[in-house]
Structures are given as structure tokens and as C-alpha cells.
């Protein structure tokens, strides 16, 4: 077995150009830069409306060195279906040479994927299009100013789940997008995190080597939405993994594998206390979140058939 990949092994070529208007410290910017390092040059990208779209394509400038298309908020997966079908048809008819291997990548935020885009995503996954879909999940509608989405976690403050005398931030739990994708019997799903870039690189490479629909769920810290200083993005992304709030794993043809084992977990408050969106939480609310994380870890360990995410160590 070759030595593990490090960040120094990633391609130097940049296909996500600097000069875009994404926030300092934006998790999604780190993701886009490294996603475009992992996909081959011959990749067509379809993108949902959202932070990444508006901040990277202000006419007449663009950050994309790939053929790239944005149509609307809820339809990135449907547009990708059309691109993929067209590539197949044009190859069959000899318009595009058979030897030309063109990949299709579709991307959206959590709003464009978990909520308004779920129907188009489901259709794309179910029909078996050869498309990799990546959702960058910053856990709220950040582009419109931090409104809750179906991906907002329990307890999080947002502008539509404010903290007041009656409300205490979001009171529902995050939607499980991975289970939804798996229900479509897709050959590959995975989770990635911007603090673990070689893992992200390897998963995207693997996903693109598999025919059919694939979904990758990417953790995407948001400086203004999560209320933290820009230099903390990677620290928060790491802490999400060390506390078990986020688990890096993949499911390849039904086979489950955790790619970042955590033998000893940190308590969830280590993650929560770094972010202003959780600062109103009481000890009781934090212990409730700890309970949810424990449940999730138990589920992961069950799927793995062994303890890959260890107990909380105080």
C-alpha cells in the first residue's frame, strides 16, 4: 500500500480562479478550490443559485476555468441530467468523439439540495444519470442572510429561528440527506470536510471512477452565518469531526467505511462554543445535542461493525 496522500500531493493547477467575491475564510471557497483540483479538466459543472454562484460569476468576470452553467435555484440536478443525456446522445451520433471522456459535476448548497432542489435531485439519482452531485452544506440559507433550512441543526440561531423569550433557535433536527440518497440505491455516497482535503480529493476521484449517480455531502463552515472569526474555519471543521458532529465516511456499493476514525471523541460543547450561533444554549440544551451526537455515533459504529468513533473523553 502506498503512503497516505498529503496536501502536498494535490495538483498545483488552479481551476477555481482567485478574485472571486466569497467571504474571507469561507468554507465553500476552500471546497470549490479543491473540488476543481480533483475533477479532470474535461468536466462540465452545473450549479444551483446560492452563495457560490453569485460570488463567482459576476458578469463579465468568472472564477470558473471549467464549462459552467447556472440556471435556477432548484434545478441543478435536472440541468445536469440534460447535460449528461446530451453528451451521450452527441457521442452516439458522432458529434462528440467517443474517446472524449467528459464528466458531469453538479453542485448546490443545502437550501438548493435538501429543500427546494430535492425533487430534481431525487429524479436525477433515480434515473441513474452519470453525474456527481456535491452539496456544500453551510446549514442555512446564507446567500439571502442566514435563514433556517432543512439542514439547520438543532439549537442553531438563524434570522428566521431567532432566540427570544419563546423561541430558542432551531428546534428541529437536521434532515438526513445521505439516507435519502442511499434510498435511491446509488453506487457511491460520501461525506467530506474542508479540514481533510486529501480525503476529499480521494473521494471525488473515486466517485468519478464509478458510473452512475453519486452524492457527496460536504461540510461547509460559514463565517457570517455561524458567527465566528474567519481564521477559525478549519479549526471548526476539525472540531466537528473530533466531536462526532460530523463523520467522514463513504458508502461504496452498500459497503460502509469511516475514512477518519476518531478513537476518542471530544464533548460537543468544544464544537458549539466556537460559534456565535450556539452561544445562547443552556447546559441542558447542550446535553440534548450531545445525546443526538451519541445516537449518530452509535448508528455509525453499527454500520461500520466496530467502534470507529470512540466514546467522549472529558
Amino acid at each position: 500500500m502506498s503512503r497516505p496522500l498529503t496536501i502536498r500531493d494535490l495538483p498545483r493547477e488552479e481551476r477555481f480562479a482567485p478574485g472571486h467575491r466569497m467571504c474571507q475564510g469561507c468554507g465553500a471557497a476552500i471546497l470549490m478550490r479543491h473540488i476543481t483540483k480533483a475533477v479532470p479538466k474535461d468536466t462540465i459543472i452545473t450549479q444551483a443559485t446560492g452563495c457560490v454562484e453569485v460570488t463567482t460569476t459576476l458578469y463579465p468576470e468568472t472564477a470558473w476555468k471549467h464549462p459552467w452553467i447556472h440556471v435556477a435555484f432548484e434545478n441543478a440536478a435536472a440541468v445536469a441530467s440534460g447535460v449528461e443525456a446530451a453528451l451521450k446522445a452527441l457521442k452516439r451520433k458522432g458529434v462528440i468523439p467517443e474517446s472524449k471522456d467528459v464528466k458531469v459535476l453538479s453542485m448546490g448548497g443545502d437550501g438548493g439540495t435538501f429543500d427546494i432542489g430535492i425533487q430534481a435531485l431525487s429524479g436525477m439519482l433515480e434515473r441513474g444519470h452519470d453525474v456527481l452531485y456535491i452539496v456544500y452544506d453551510n446549514e442555512a440559507y446564507m446567500n439571502t442572510g442566514i435563514q433556517r433550512s432543512g439542514a439547520t441543526p438543532f439549537g442553531a440561531w438563524t434570522t428566521t429561528t431567532p432566540v427570544g423569550k419563546v423561541w430558542r433557535g432551531e428546534w428541529r433536527r437536521k434532515k438526513d440527506i445521505i439516507s435519502i440518497a442511499l434510498a435511491h440505491r446509488v453506487p457511491y455516497v460520501a461525506t467530506v470536510n474542508p479540514a481533510f482535503l486529501p480525503d476529499l480529493y480521494e473521494k471525488i476521484r473515486k466517485a468519478l471512477s464509478i458510473k452512475g449517480p453519486k452524492l457527496i455531502h460536504a461540510f461547509s463552515p460559514c463565517v457570517p452565518g455561524w458567527r465566528y472569526e474567519p481564521e477559525l474555519t478549519i479549526a471548526i471543521a476539525k472540531m466537528a469531526v473530533f466531536t462526532g458532529v460530523w463523520v467522514n465516511y463513504e458508502v461504496e456499493n452498500g459497503e460502509f467505511r469511516v475514512t477518519t476514525p476518531v478513537p476518542k471523541r471530544k464533548p460537543v460543547e468544544e464544537y458549539l462554543k466556537l460559534q456565535g450561533r450556539f452561544r445562547h444554549l443552556t447546559a441542558q440544551e447542550i446535553s440534548e445535542i450531545q445525546k443526538y451526537v451519541d445516537e449518530q455515533v452509535e448508528h455509525i459504529n453499527k454500520l461500520a461493525g466496530k467502534v470507529v468513533i470512540g466514546p467522549v473523553e472529558r
Binding site: 452553467i69 440556471v71 434545478n75 451521450k88 446522445a89 452516439r92 429524479g123
Partner: peptide, 28 residues
């Protein structure tokens, strides 16, 4: 007829896929 048929899940996606396919150069 040598065409790819996309059995979309709604008219919204029917036209969205048409946009994607047309943008790729297909007659749609």
C-alpha cells in the same frame, strides 16, 4: 429516432434538463 429520452419527474425539470441539453449543443 436516435434520441436520449429523459423521463423527468416534473415539467420544471423537463425544461431545466432541456436547458442543460441545449447548452451542451444537442437539438432538444
Amino acid at each position: 429516432l436516435d434520441a436520449k429520452v429523459i423521463h423527468v419527474e416534473s415539467e420544471h425539470s423537463a425544461l431545466s434538463a432541456a436547458v442543460g441539453a441545449s447548452a451542451t449543443g444537442a437539438r432538444i
